[in-house]
C-alpha cells in the first residue's frame, strides 16, 4: 500500500472525504450494503456495518475498488478488525472510515489499513495532521506494514 501523503483535503459535508492517502481517482458512485454486494455481480463499492463479517467479501476482492467501514459510534471497534482482515487478504483498493471518526482514532485507523477518512464532523486539520504523525514508531505489526520496535531493535 503506497503511502502518498495526505491528498485531497476537502470535505465539507457528511460522507465527504476529508483525508485521503491515495493517488488514484476516487470512486464516483455510492456504496451498497454487504448483502446487496454479494447478490450483485457488478458492484465495486461496498459499505460494511459493524455487524457485518468482512470475510464474506474475501472471494470478491478483485472487483472491489472502495470499501467503506462505518463507525456509527467511535467506541465500537469492530471496524478495526474488518479493515485488517481485508488488508491481510491483500485488498488494495480504497478503505474508507466513515461516521463517528475522531482525531484520536486517526492513527489507529491508519495502522489498520484505512487510507481515506470521511468523518461526520469535519476535523480540525492542524490537530488531525498532528494525530497522523504522532507515533514515530510502533510496537506491533499491523496493516500499515511498518516495522515494529521489536524488529528495529534487532537490525
Amino acid at each position: 500500500m503506497a503511502d502518498a501523503g495526505i491528498n485531497g483535503i476537502g470535505g465539507t459535508s457528511p460522507d465527504e472525504v476529508q483525508f485521503r492517502f491515495r493517488d488514484d481517482e476516487p470512486v464516483d458512485h455510492g456504496t451498497v450494503t454487504v448483502d446487496s454486494f454479494l447478490d450483485q455481480s457488478n458492484a465495486s463499492a461496498v459499505r460494511i456495518e459493524p455487524g457485518d463479517d468482512a470475510r464474506a467479501l474475501l472471494p470478491h476482492l478483485g472487483r472491489l475498488r472502495l470499501v467503506e467501514v462505518n463507525f456509527p459510534v467511535f467506541s465500537d471497534g469492530r471496524g478495526y478488525s474488518a479493515a485488517r482482515v481485508l488488508r491481510e487478504a491483500e485488498y488494495a483498493g480504497e478503505l474508507r472510515a466513515v461516521g463517528d471518526v475522531l482525531i484520536d482514532q486517526l492513527a489507529l485507523l491508519r495502522r489498520c489499513g484505512f487510507d481515506a477518512f470521511a468523518p461526520d464532523q469535519r476535523l480540525n486539520e492542524v490537530d488531525a495532521v498532528a494525530a497522523f504523525a504522532r507515533w514515530e514508531n510502533v510496537y506491533q505489526h499491523a496493516a500499515d506494514r511498518r516495522r515494529p520496535i521489536p524488529e528495529l531493535r534487532h537490525g
Binding site: Q105, Q140, A142
Partner: peptide
C-alpha cells in the same frame, strides 16, 4: 509491548 497502543484492540 505488543498490547501497548494496539491499533486493532483499543475499542
Amino acid at each position: 509491548q505488543w498490547s501497548s497502543f494496539h491499533p486493532e484492540f483499543s475499542f
